[in-house]
Design a protein around this nucleic acid. Structure first.
Lengths: 209, 209
DNA sequence: CTAACGTTTGTCCAACCGGTCAAAAATTTG
DNA sequence: CAAATTTTTGACCGGTTGGACAAACGTTAG
């Protein structure tokens, strides 16, 4: 039985990867409408008609890119598990998300761009798959709260705040680097951010006793 | 002595306002490159050449919009003051920022769009005016830390985290509403967010004792 | 070799888009 | 009123963009 994905030659596989890599670069920097097929083709080292041989429409590239993105993008949350110690679990979720902001900033920006424009292409997924996943994990977190392992609060907004604070370092990177300046804006900023976020989420700002 | 702003008739004032309002709507929803002069003109209820009579180029609209935005956008941070109680000051800064996300989501998205694309038009302002302001306020916060009023941590990343968590509710509004669902995604979400953020920033997640 | 198949490219097109321009319409001024 | 000035519009233009297409090129199998 053949899967739903069309069978492809080795060259097609490779060229499609090349195009997707180039498109990620271009789309994440300029947005969908701000990017041209020519730009992507040039970044992929081929002619425009050649690119259109592998992807019939500009939208197809974006769609493929978005589908792949979502899987890897939600992986850290999927890993959030009921097994270990709650605070440790949350701490490592934050760390994983921050690492993704550091290692895959283009993916983060591509996603941010899509949401900013009202998520025209992935709204169904947000209301379906994403909501289901978040509700599921919110239930896990609620369990931790009932068990007194973490403070009682709103699990959904907790997840939002983790997304916001970590993705900020990818999406608003220019601003972060501008404000930190040349000396503190180097690669150390992610370690500083990790330390800060750990402290914020665990203990907040109020001094003890 | 005449100011640097050109003198304008009453009609010019009004029409320019009309255009800027329409442009805010269109730009914040589609980004700069994703927006056309025709869209803005239609939203402002006038013809394209008529619009171009008031703003010679598309970029001029965006630039004017951006200049106005920045003043109001940074107002809450400017108000952060050394006078009152530190924790109260921070709490009301967070509240003000969240209110801006609620009341001016288009402005937030316009700004986010600009930063996401690498801030091509406002980078100098980020490295100049913004950095100066943030450094100044970071010094104030450091003073609070030295006085033991709030816990010792990185003031810059603290400010980033406040920006990120509050603006998230404007910039990622579609996602927030999708995940919360019809029942909890109503107007109450901002109050829920306010309660959550207050708790997070003050006490963190670790249970007492 | 050659037929079949997969890949690449030059050329072209229609739609769109930012911006111009001259002339008409409306408004203000005297 | 009429002249002067401001505002509005239809028509147009050059450049860009997404995409089509047929022909050329390369590769592989018989």
């Amino acid at each position: 039985m053949e899967g739903s994905a069309p069978r492809r030659t080795r060259i097609q596989q490779e060229k499609r990867e090349l195009i997707l890599e180039a498109a990620l670069e271009v789309f994440s920097a300029n947005g969908f409408r701000g990017s041209t097929i020519d730009q992507i083709a040039e970044a992929a080292g081929m002619s425009k008609p050649n690119l259109l041989y592998y992807f019939r429409r500009k939208e197809d590239i974006h769609e493929t890119l978005m589908q792949r993105l979502l899987d890897t993008w939600l992986a850290p949350l999927r890993e959030l598990d009921d097994i270990g110690d709650p605070l440790t679990e949350l701490r490592s979720y934050i760390r994983r998300k921050l690492e993704m902001a550091r290692d895959f900033p283009r993916e983060s920006r591509l996603f941010a761009n899509e949401i900013l424009q009202g998520a025209p292409r992935i709204k169904p997924m947000l209301e379906g798959e994403l909501k289901t996943l978040v509700d599921e994990k919110a239930a896990v977190i609620k369990g931790w709260m009932r068990a007194g392992k973490i403070v009682r609060t709103d699990p959904w907004h907790l997840i939002f705040s983790i997304w916001a604070t970590t993705q900020h370092y990818a999406d608003f990177d220019v601003q972060v680097r501008a404000v930190l300046g040349a000396d503190r804006g180097g690669n150390g900023r992610f370690e500083d951010a990790a330390r800060f976020l750990e402290q914020l989420f665990l203990d907040g700002l109020k001094p003890k006793g």
